[in-house]
Structure formats: structure tokens, C-alpha cells
Design a binder for these strands. Structure first.
Lengths: 295, 295
DNA sequence: GCAATAGTGTCTTTTAGACATTATGTG
DNA sequence: CACATAATGTCTAAAAGACACTATTGC
């Protein structure tokens, strides 16, 4: 096969040998990871089940910009490092967690001043872990690492817009970070599209760093959406789980309650019963189940 | 409120004034756009409806690397240009199309050698346009611009994997580009994940540039997925459309057929009847409908 | 025995699929 | 009038929701 030449009469090999990347300025590329888990709240009664809450791991920034603000963990992508590799490396460095489910969320780069230092494009990822065996530890870029409970509730709903409150809380440290989210249905020619506006709640003293409140808001929506039509929830329970535990994960994320019978029917296609039982809970023991791998 | 100082005793303002971006190498960031439409094939019978096909716009590269190969249009993101702005700019430059529905697909950057010239991270986007009033025109980076019909069909299906053929064809230019896709269900600890392998079909002489075959494959999946639970399909029909036209869009993308009654019931929540009718089609005229904007 | 959760059976409602039938234009 | 599509009515099957009821544990 005859090698094709370009307009300068060069073969591909010659072209690449002589290729000099332009000296135009390039953006920095970072990865962000939103690590979610569904955690048990402390038991209030020996025989009652623990309530669950959706939690996200945040770090406290120890340098400018946004010094002292809480932020999503992340870091720069090396020039010779794949994006996923960078995310797993950062996750390991900042939280000592490995082997988790992770998916790409969105790439943020419309606002060229989202980082006041320089142009930064950030590829955000969502990771899901079961709440057992979690020992996050602070890394280089952070004073502290902490789990924050995440709540997103509808506060107003009209024909043209829905208003939510997104509240992040860490009770131990007595921190509450709140944002108001308004999803507006905007006529965009023929098609209506959703435009999201986010601003801090008036009473909320604390703020998240950068545009991280937008990323968290998107992640919650994505999580709620994907749990409905994918088996993503199995990443939030241990290998062996009771159906009630699984139900609590769904209820916690979606903010609704299921009838046990109907929930069991719904997930029955995706689970297989294990031999073991979960005893010692102050009431009838529950069978343990495992995900059967169906999609 | 007392201004916080960092470890060097600097305020945020001082920090930013003195901040020098590191001289580490940065990746180039590009945007790719997969422009899809559902087009009418030529009529074979005056009274029969035109068959439809999913089409994607490709450009023929006129320089190395991949000189002469067909590729997804795209280009570099300027240092002071938002990502969406860059996509709309490129779309306008390369195809003269504006005001289209667009969404981010995925960011490609795991393979650091996906572009042989340098490290390139590419943010791919999917745009949808109705097939009327489309006059793409070649821009600077391309010899030619052409629509290719896109087909993705299951060729084999077992418990552990599904095999597809993705075929891109342009009849006018007599080009057929074919890939074999295998989605494997891989045990990943407890959870099974899907791993996708793609390779050119043996008989396929032509190839797509870079890793663009992977991007197109993902876009088809995303489109098929999202058409099921979002009103995305209305971006592929004109402002006023008949229900059969809408049905054909669904059938073309999903590769299945609907019963008219059931399809009408399914979309009835999302359309409003217009006063106008579509006449002159060789059979009973059809009412025109419009999208009502519900989500 | 009591409280709390585990687990099953079944009725109802809603949604989705199949298919027959009538309507209305063009050539 | 023939043909092809438009549009509606209705029967059936499947999925989702509601709820009553029994089972089993720790204390």
C-alpha cells in the first residue's frame, strides 16, 4: 500500500518526527472524585434498625485559594498518566481506599475562571463504597478529611421550576453547608431545557470551595437517576447484605419509602440467597443475599 | 471577618498575585462532537413513507496523523474559551450549523498515546439535529464533510458477552467502515462490570481516525439509552412533526418496531396537537404535533 | 410475652403489548 | 376504487402498588 503524503510531501512517520507541539497555553487538567457511601447512623434502640444516611467525603483545604473551605478531593493529571489512573491514585493518596466502583460524571470547563490561579478543566468522577471498613485519612493537600451527610429535598415546586435545598452536615465538627438549587424549565426554541441555578442559603456560614457545590448537586441527581435503572446500588452494600439493608440504600438515596413486599419483588431478579443469616439484631434474623451479576 | 493566612503568612489576594503556575507539561484539550440526525432515505413508492436512517457527520482528515481517514469533527479548546463555547464554535466552523441540542458524552484521556503527536484529552459531545435544513460544509481541517449512516446490530449473544457490528456507510462515496464490538460481562470482585472490546471487521478496508470508533460506539449506546427515559428524540424531528415521524425516529435508533396504538399512548403525554395537517403524502393526511415541554 | 423486623400471599391498579376496525387522503 | 397510512377502541398480559398476615428473634 502506497504511503500517503500530506501537503508538505511528508509521510506520517516524517510528519510525527518533525512535529512540534505549538507553544500556545494549555489548561491544567484535574480529576475530582466524589466518594459516596450510605452509612448507619448510631442506633437509638437495641432492637430498632439503624437509620442510614448518604455521605460524601470532603477535605478541608489547607492553602489558598479557598483556604479552610471544604472541598471535593482531587488533583492534577500527570502528563503521562491516564485519567482513571489519576483518579485511583488520588483516591489512594487522600483516603487510602482502593478497588472501588467509579464512573465518570462530567467535565467542568465552561467557566475559565473557576480556579482563580489558572485555567483548570476538571474531570469529575463518582465513586461508591460500602460503609464497612472505611478509614479515610488526610493526605498532603488537606488538613482534615471528613464524611458529610448529604440531603437534597424539594422545598418548592411549580409548573416552571423546582426548588431544592442541598444540605451537607458533619455533626461531630458541627458544620452545616447549605445551598439552594433551582431547576428552571426554560423554553429553548421548541424544546424546553433545564437550567440550574445554585446559590448558598442565607443562614449557611460555610461554603464549599470552587464550584464544587455544582458538582455535588449533579452527582446527587446522577446517583438518584442511575439507581433506578442500573444495579449501581450493589456498590453501596457489603458483598453479603440483607434485603432490608439494600432497601434502606434505595430509600436513603431516593428519599422515598418502599413497601417491603414490592421492593423484594423488584430486586429479586438481581440477588441470590446466601446460606448465612444475620443474627443478633434484636429481632428475627435476616437471610443474607448477594448480587447475582445481572445488568 | 479576619482574613485567613496560609502557611507562608499570605492572604488569598497576596497568594494569587504571587502565584506562578508550575512549569510542568500540560495536556492539550480538545472537543469532539458527534452530530447525529435521522434522515429520510429516498422514496421508493409515491405513497409509501420514506425509510429513515441514523446518520453521523464525519470529516475526512487532510493532514497527518490519520491523513485521509474519516474522523469525528472537533478541535482544540482555547485557553480562555469555555468547553461548550469551543464545541459550538467548532460546529459552526466545520458544518455551519448553530442552535442545536448538545450534551457532554465522555472525556477520553486514559490512553496517553491516543494522539501520536502529543498528550491529548478530548471531551466528546453529542449533538442532535432534525434532518431538514442541513447543509454541512467542509472547514479548514477537512477535505470533505459527509453524512454516514450508522447501524449497530447484535451478531451474537451469550450469557457472558454480546457481540455487535457497527457499520458506517456512505453510499454516494461508496465507503463502508465496520467494527466488531464485544461487551463482556466481567466479574470484578462481587460486582460484574462491562468491558468493551472493539476491533475493525476483517473485510473493512477503511478505518476511523484515532479512537473515534470507541466514541461513536459509546454515543450510539448513550443515544439508545437516553431515548428511553428522556424526551431527547424531539431534537431529531422538526418543530412540527407527525406521530409516525416520531415513531420512525424511535424505531430507527432502537432498531425495533412499535405498534402505532401503543406508541401513540406512550408519547401522548409529551405532545400537543397542532392545527395543521401534513397533506400530499399519497394517503390519509396526518395531524402535526409539537413537543409540549414536559420532562 | 412484647417489640421489632423478616418474609409471604393476594388483591387492586397501572402500564404495556396485541390486534381489530374505521377513516381519509392520492393516483 | 385500490392502496397506504392515520387514528381509535378494546382485549389481554405484565408490572407496580397496597396491605393483611405469619414467622422468628432478643430481651
Amino acid at each position: 500500500m502506497k504511503e500517503r503524503l500530506n501537503k508538505d510531501g511528508l509521510t506520517e512517520k516524517e510528519f510525527l518526527e518533525r512535529y512540534k507541539p505549538g507553544d500556545y497555553e494549555r489548561p491544567s487538567v484535574t480529576v475530582d472524585m466524589l466518594l459516596f457511601t450510605v452509612n448507619n447512623k448510631p442506633k437509638t434502640d437495641y432492637k430498632k434498625l439503624a437509620e442510614k444516611e448518604l455521605q460524601i467525603l470532603l477535605i478541608k483545604r489547607k492553602d489558598h485559594p479557598y483556604l479552610g473551605h471544604w472541598a471535593i478531593p482531587g488533583g492534577f493529571v500527570d502528563i503521562d498518566e491516564g485519567i482513571s489512573t489519576a483518579v485511583y491514585r488520588e483516591l489512594k493518596e487522600e483516603t487510602n481506599i482502593e478497588n472501588v466502583y467509579m464512573e465518570q460524571l462530567c467535565t467542568w470547563g465552561d467557566d475559565v475562571k473557576r480556579d482563580p490561579r489558572m485555567r483548570v478543566i476538571s474531570v469529575s468522577h463518582m465513586a461508591l463504597v460500602p460503609s464497612d471498613n472505611l478509614k479515610p485519612q488526610a493526605g498532603d493537600d488537606a488538613d482534615e478529611v471528613a464524611w458529610f451527610s448529604v440531603k437534597k429535598n424539594v422545598t418548592k415546586s411549580t409548573e416552571t421550576e423546582i426548588e431544592y435545598e442541598v444540605i451537607l452536615t458533619n455533626e461531630e465538627k458541627d458544620i452545616t453547608i447549605g445551598y439552594k438549587v433551582i431547576d428552571k424549565f426554560v423554553k429553548n426554541g421548541v424544546i424546553k431545557t433545564i437550567e440550574t441555578e445554585i446559590e448558598p442559603l442565607l443562614w449557611s456560614k460555610d461554603r464549599l470551595a470552587f464550584d464544587h457545590y455544582k458538582i455535588i448537586n449533579l452527582a446527587i441527581d446522577r446517583l438518584r437517576n442511575k439507581i433506578e435503572y442500573t444495579p449501581i446500588a450493589f456498590n453501596l452494600v457489603p458483598e453479603k447484605f440483607t434485603l432490608t439493608q439494600l432497601q434502606q440504600v434505595y430509600e436513603t438515596i431516593l428519599g422515598i419509602e418502599f413497601t417491603p413486599t414490592n421492593f423484594r419483588r423488584k430486586v429479586s431478579k438481581y440477588v441470590i440467597k446466601d446460606d448465612e443469616m444475620l443474627t443478633g439484631a434484636g429481632h428475627r434474623p435476616a437471610s443474607l443475599f448477594r448480587y447475582n451479576g445481572c445488568i
